[in-house]
C-alpha cells in the first residue's frame, strides 16, 4: 500500500499500540489482559508497519528476529517454572518479591511467564503473517 497519510500515522500508531500492549501485559495478572492479548496487540503494531511500508519493515522493526523471539519466549516461560523448583516449592510454583516503589509492587514469576508468552505470540504471529504478505507481489 502506498499512502503517505498511512505512513505518517503508522509510526505514531505503532508506538501507541506497543505502549497499550505493554499495559495489557502488565494488568493481565489480576484483570483481563496478559501475555497473549498483549502479544497480539504488539504483533498488530508490527503488522501495521508492514502494511504501511513494506512487509520486511514490520519484520525488521522487532529488532530481534521473530524466529528468535519464539524460542526466547518459550525459554523465559520455561525458566520461570524452575524458580519454584529452586525455591523448593515445585515446578511452576509462583515466587514473589516486593519492590519498594510507591506502596510496594509485588513482582513474581507469573509475570515472567507472561513476558515469555508475550514474546512467543509476537514471534508466531509475525512469522505467520509477514511471509504471507510477501506472497502476493
Amino acid at each position: 500500500m502506498n499512502s503517505s497519510i498511512l505512513r505518517t500515522m503508522a509510526r505514531l500508531l505503532a508506538s501507541l499500540l506497543l505502549l497499550a500492549s505493554l499495559y495489557l501485559l502488565w494488568r493481565g495478572h489480576n484483570a483481563p489482559g496478559g501475555g497473549f492479548s498483549g502479544g497480539i496487540m504488539a504483533a498488530a503494531a508490527f503488522v501495521l508497519m508492514a502494511v504501511a511500508f513494506e512487509p520486511m519493515a514490520g519484520w525488521r522493526a522487532t529488532r530481534v528476529s521473530p524466529l528468535v523471539l519464539i524460542p526466547l519466549g518459550l525459554g523465559i516461560a520455561l525458566a520461570s517454572g524452575f524458580a519454584g523448583v529452586l525455591a523448593g516449592d515445585g515446578f511452576m510454583a509462583g515466587q514473589w518479591v516486593t519492590v519498594a516503589v510507591g506502596d510496594g509492587v509485588k513482582l513474581g514469576t507469573p509475570l515472567l511467564f507472561d513476558i515469555g508468552v508475550y514474546l512467543v505470540v509476537i514471534g508466531v504471529a509475525l512469522a505467520v503473517i509477514i511471509p504471507l504478505m510477501g506472497e502476493e507481489e
Partner: peptide
C-alpha cells in the same frame, strides 16, 4: 513432569540455534 519439560527445553535450544 520431566517428560514434558525435557522436550520443551530441547526444542527451545534447537530453535535458538536454528
Amino acid at each position: 513432569a520431566l517428560p514434558v519439560i525435557l522436550p520443551l527445553a530441547t526444542a527451545v535450544a534447537g530453535l535458538l540455534l536454528l
